[in-house]
Amino acid sequence: MSHRTAVVAEAAWAPRWAGALLCLVVAAIHVVDQDGLTATKAPSYMGIAYHVLEIAAVIAAVLLLLGLVRLGWLLAVGVALGPLVGYILSRGPGLPGDSDDIGNWTEPLGLVSLAVEGALLLLSVPLFVRSLRRRP
C-alpha cells in the first residue's frame, strides 16, 4: 500500500469514528434524560421512542465502525433527525400526553442534545449522499 493510499484509508476512518461517537453520545443523552437504561419516560409512547432511538444509535455506530457506511449513515441521519424533530414538537405545540416541556427551549441537557444531533446531522447527510454515489 502506498503512502497516499494509507493516508486516504486512514482519513476514511475519521468521519466513521466521529459519526459512531456522536451516535453513542445521542444514546447516552437520552438514557440520562429518561433516568437510566431500565426506566421508561412517560408517556409510554415517548419512553418506547427513547428506547428505539438508543438501540438505533448503537446499531448505527456499530455499522459505521464495521464499514457498512450506506446503512450506517442512513441510520445516523435518523438518529440525528428524530430527536431534533421531537425536541421542536415537545417544546412548541407539545406532544399528546406530554405538555411539560412546552416553551422549555433552554433546558441544558436539551441544548447539549441539539448540538450533538446537529453535528451528527451535518456529518451524516453528506456522507450518506456520497455513499449513494459509490457502487454497492
Rank of each mutant, 00 (worst) to 15 (best):
L120D: 06
C23Q: 05
G94C: 05
R91C: 13
V58E: 00
E54V: 15
L132M: 04
A119T: 11
A49M: 13
I29P: 00
D33Y: 01
C23I: 10
A57C: 12
L71V: 14
V8M: 12
A60N: 02
L84M: 13
A49G: 07
T5F: 13
A49I: 08
T5Y: 09
A42H: 10
L74K: 05
V25A: 05
D100F: 10
A28N: 00
T40A: 08
S124H: 10
M1N: 01
C23P: 09
V26R: 00
Y45E: 15
G72V: 04
L64P: 07
G110D: 10
A76G: 12
A49T: 03
G94I: 02
A42V: 10
I102K: 03
V8W: 10
R16L: 13
P43T: 08
N104Q: 14
V69D: 05
M1S: 05
L132G: 01
H3Q: 12
L81T: 11
M1R: 12
L95W: 06
L63N: 10
L81K: 09
L89T: 07
P126T: 14
V79W: 00
G97W: 03
G19C: 12
H3G: 12
E54P: 05
W73S: 04
L74N: 03
R134V: 08
A56G: 04
V8A: 14
R4M: 13
I55L: 14
G36H: 01
G47S: 06
P43F: 04
M1T: 07
L84H: 14
T106E: 14
L109R: 05
V31P: 01
A27G: 00
P83G: 14
L120C: 10
G118E: 03
V8E: 15
Y45V: 13
I55A: 13
A57H: 06
L121Y: 12
G36R: 02
P126F: 11
C23K: 08
L111H: 01
M1V: 07
G110P: 00
A27W: 00
R130S: 15
L122K: 14
A115M: 04
